[in-house]
């Protein structure tokens, strides 16, 4: 595994206007892999990304991006591509104009590649930005990022509002991008189905804190879903129920795998999906106990 991580956040605190904040956020992605940042809306995903990209100042902590400190020299942005759920170009610009406008800022801009990507993505250089569909707008931002030879792609909620075909295309584009071992991808999402397959690493964020981070398989192994009757799973000793959902028919919750052995044999214990983990962590109103899960050497 290469020595320099694609990025690393360590002990990041960030106060945001109306009291919301990131508290002691820390996680990192080794170069060459995909990480999904999972959390409910308002969990702090976008703030985390904005801090990582130096678009927002932090109050304390340390951020490293492609081996350099953030905030730092803007030349770092030569290597980073940003894809949001909306474009940040003038709506009236034609796609050819987008290139003419952005090109002077990038040292390694590749005009031939831009035109080739537009063609590949089925985008007309004469189309205007404002007339692009959600999926096309996403592809435009990706085309820009790939044309200036970004090494890290950061997506904020790329799949929200995308139809299944466009989401599948995105997975293909990310796969192509990662053929180069020096390329890495971070994306935030609340639709975990996208991550269930292609994500190498996962960071779960809730209420401005990192609940868990690590290789996806380790995260999946670390939790179990338990289901029991209405009277079961009460007065547990040594087992913490995360985000328990009770109904007259029964109860469902998340537990840590190492505690699952302590449960009554009658309850159903199953391996969770990322979605189930995300839901129960989202449901836990109190912040889940931040116990350090023994992390294997990353991948």
């Amino acid at each position: 595994m290469p020595e320099t991580p694609a990025f690393a956040l360590r002990g990041v605190n960030c106060a945001v206007g109306n009291g919301f904040a990131l508290r002691d956020v820390g996680f990192e992605l080794p170069t060459g892999y995909v990480m999904g940042l999972i959390g409910a809306n308002g969990a702090g995903k976008t703030t985390t990304i904005r801090c990582l990209l130096g678009m927002r100042g932090i109050d304390s902590g340390e951020i490293e991006l492609l081996g350099r400190r953030v905030p730092g020299s803007v030349s770092l942005r030569q290597d980073v591509g940003v894809v949001l759920d909306h474009t940040y170009f003038v709506g009236e610009w034609r796609l050819a104009e987008v290139e003419r406008t952005l090109r002077p800022f990038y040292d390694r801009w590749d005009g031939a590649r831009y035109r080739q990507l537009l063609d590949e993505f089925g985008l007309d250089p004469k189309a205007r930005v404002k007339n692009l569909s959600r999926g096309m707008a996403m592809k435009l931002m990706i085309a820009v990022a790939l044309s200036h030879r970004a090494r890290l792609l950061v997506f904020d909620e790329p799949t929200s509002g995308l139809d299944p075909v466009a989401r599948a295309e995105l997975v293909g584009i990310i796969g192509d991008f990662l053929l180069d071992e020096g390329h890495s991808v971070l994306f935030s999402t609340h639709i975990t189905a996208d991550l269930d397959r292609i994500g190498d690493f996962v960071t779960l964020i809730h209420d401005g804190r990192v609940v868990d981070t690590g290789p996806k398989d380790e995260i999946l192994d670390a939790y179990r879903v338990v289901r029991g009757g209405p009277d079961e799973l009460t007065d547990l000793i040594g087992v913490e129920l995360i985000g328990a959902r009770r109904s007259p028919a029964g109860v469902e919750a998340l537990v840590r795998t190492d505690e699952a052995g302590l449960l009554d044999g009658r309850v159903l214990v199953e391996a969770p999906t990322l979605e189930e983990i995300a839901i129960h962590i989202g449901l836990s109103s109190a912040r889940p106990a931040l116990r350090t899960r023994t992390r294997g050497a990353a991948a």
């Binding site: 130096g54 678009m55 942005r77 940003v82 949001l84 474009t87 940040y88 170009f89 709506g91 800022f105």
Partner: peptide
């Protein structure tokens, strides 16, 4: 109108 502040934060400028 076009969220160019984001563009300015993304561009190497």
């Amino acid at each position: 109108k076009a969220d160019l502040t984001t563009l300015y934060a993304v561009l190497p400028v």
